[in-house]
Design a protein around this nucleic acid. Structure first.
Lengths: 126, 126
DNA sequence: ATTGCTGGTCTCAATTAGAGACTGTAATCG
DNA sequence: CGATTACAGTCTCTAATTGAGACCAGCAAT
């Protein structure tokens, strides 16, 4: 298992007290450009690889693949392969993934409410 | 204003329906390695530049500086300079920043509860 | 006199992400 | 019948982003 790219950042070689910070642990994984977006995309129904790519159009297949791997390794999504030809690979939320979605709700609501004002501030600041 | 680095990703030139996704808008900014960590660090009290650097030891001064700028541009933190020598620059949460912290609460709690299990799954997957 | 503190910026190297070609089989289109 | 499309990825090459560390000014303490 060589190249699973950065989503798996090195966790070893850190000052001990950082290792033990749970927010750190979790943010280092899901706090990237794509993880939450993919989780949110899977919220309503399981999806197949290319369908996910279409739902999040500007993700590259490379990042799609590696992000899904890391979400699976964290037990947030499952992956199932039907050995048809061509094979059908489906991804969906696990219970843990669903519980994360729930915990994310207030943040999503916040984003919806605050975005207009933030956008205005950004313009002013630029 | 040349180099404010990636935290300010280009928002122009996107397919319209992505621009309008609020979660996208917000995650593109605070969904990075440092933003939430800094916000959380400011939760209890305003802090000065180098104090923040010490609180989040593995952030580089470069990213500290550019992340703070982007948080300020989004109206999530304020920055105040006391013209003493050497000048004292203090950062703190705005009301909007504080409201984000509140919205983040369930996610932080989730992280605290789930981290042990996630860590075990990661080992198994590796 | 040397060291360290303040808050940054600058350059250069390393890491990470993105673009797009390629795999191989099977169904579809004209 | 030949060409294209879709499936789920991987691979390489290049571009973007991040990190490491030097540097700036002036002042305080050792």
């Amino acid at each position: 298992m060589a190249d699973a790219v950065s989503v798996e950042r090195s966790l070893d070689g850190m000052p001990g007290d950082l290792q033990s910070c749970p927010i750190r642990q979790v943010l280092d994984r899901i706090g990237d450009r794509w993880s939450l977006l993919l989780l949110l995309t899977l919220k309503d129904a399981p999806q197949r690889f290319n369908a996910l790519g279409r739902a999040v159009p500007d993700i590259s297949r490379r990042m799609l693949s590696s992000t899904l791997k890391s979400l699976e390794a964290d037990g947030l999504i499952w992956r199932s392969v039907e050995a048809t030809t061509p094979p059908a690979v489906t991804y969906g939320l696990t219970d843990r993934g669903r519980s994360l979605i729930v915990a994310l709700r207030p943040l999503v609501d916040w984003a919806e409410v605050q975005t207009p004002a933030i956008l205005m501030d950004r313009r002013r600041a630029s």
